[in-house]
Design a binder for these strands. Structure first.
Lengths: 162, 162, 162, 162
DNA sequence: TTTT
DNA sequence: TTTT
């Protein structure tokens, strides 16, 4: 019953390794920073570049996959929606943040990403997930399938006649 | 684990009332024909129009909503993917068909659609759904919520921290 | 030579009449505020709504059309890109703003929009465009074509063989 | 003055080298075949894959870049629109073809593509472009910039105040 | 601030 | 076959 469409499609490279956190119930909340660069000619015919740095949040299984397989320099596709948030900083000032909430992610380039230093390693997390209770959506303990959300064109119902 | 992106976004008007069918298990399979028109100038400066007629399939609950609320002339938004099918006709000839498989639908224009004759009525179906057994996904017997797929930005997990 | 994709697709309703300004050279710069609403169920099964208010900028001819034909309540389609800006406020504080730079606009719903009060009138501008010199991209003095950007599927070259 | 939206976004890999042709006036018309694969579980819990092969046409400068830099196995992003065509075959039978008309292309993966045999070479054309007169849009004789359409977020007017 |  |  949504009213309206709020859709974002990004292809870009990560400026840093993903940051993975967990909710109390064990759901992954991963943040990545994606760069997209556009080019235009100014009035003097000079080429002007401009880079936007997108803050992208991925939840649950999608966040786990991002945390496992993306790293600084990786190129990926993101589909999601824009979310504008307002909060009050520690100084009492109101602040605004814009985030892309991802519905779909795919790694691009075939080799699991980037070209940064440490190619071949997975991004290290500052700390392993530590919890007192069994999470509902625990991160995959071992190997996880290497990409894509599943929400996209994965038909749930077997009745589809094809 | 999809590999690649296959995404279609359409806004157009229905050329006819939706056609609703049901699978053996009671799932709705609705087909609509959507027109999109583009305009360009030819080399003589004349305006040339061209209309594409898209064949869109909607399954399950989305198909039921489409069958209930769309009709000839309605304007709607479709998001989905392209599917190319090949089949053998009764004359033994191979034939090809291209369809858009809808993941999301929203009615546009606020008034549930068109302006064709019979404004205010729902599209009549050639026959009511007839089944020998209780369907898993029966069409809503009475009023159904008036639009949108649910797949889009409806977060399933309560843990999302906002 | 862009690197990456930064694409936004919105369908929403205007919260207010468009605001039209002009650059020194006479180019229209129009700002609209578009609402998109998503719905989800919280853990108690209650329906939670959330509305995002997008700030959309339209330049040149697209901005003129928006200023002429959109008004408070109008439903429209926007395609564009996200732009994050940082500036220093009068209090010396750094502030951030996120805007959608429109490449394409289409009015939806057939009747030029809304339903708000004053239906049938065009949005009033606070002041007519005032300039000292002839603008390169002056607003259309009389009637202007009622929508769509032109950038989209308007093939510029006559050689295209269809 | 287009009516409706007809937009396609694809990310996939080329099944073969691009096919480049030229119109009488020298405009490149390049065809590529792109694969996108989706995955779903059938009712028995088995993973079912399905690949769509898209036929994508690129015109002018975009077609030249595609012909120069893409080859079998390359991964690329395409944005465009769907076009349904009908023609009569040599046997007098009516046939249908669906094509994606590209507005934008970007190579993905950073290394100019694929992994097929011949990595590092450009795709060979069956014949060099042969023309009686100087083409308006001749293929770049030497090095050409390696990607992206230019139509996307390249602001044409210098007046844009940023 | 819109809309349903 | 729609729509503007």
């Amino acid at each position: 019953m949504a009213r309206g469409i709020n859709k974002v499609i990004l292809i870009g490279n990560l400026g840093d390794d993903p940051e993975v956190k967990y909710t109390q119930s064990g759901m992954a909340v991963t943040t990545i920073r994606l760069a997209t660069t556009s080019v235009r000619k100014d009035r003097d015919g000079n080429t002007q570049e401009r880079t936007e740095w997108h803050r992208v949040k991925l939840f649950g299984k999608l966040g786990e996959i991002a945390g496992e397989y993306l790293r600084k320099g990786s190129q990926c596709y993101i589909e999601g929606s824009i979310r504008y948030d307002k909060f009050t900083g520690q100084d009492g000032q109101e602040r605004y943040i814009t985030e892309i909430i991802a519905d779909e992610m795919q790694m691009l380039g075939g080799r699991g990403g980037g070209g940064g230093e440490g190619f071949g390693e997975r991004p290290q997390r500052s700390a392993p997930p530590r919890r007192e209770f069994a999470p509902r959506n625990a991160p995959a303990p071992a190997a996880a399938p290497p990409a894509s959300s599943g929400g996209f064109d994965d038909f749930a119902d077997d009745d589809i006649p094809f």
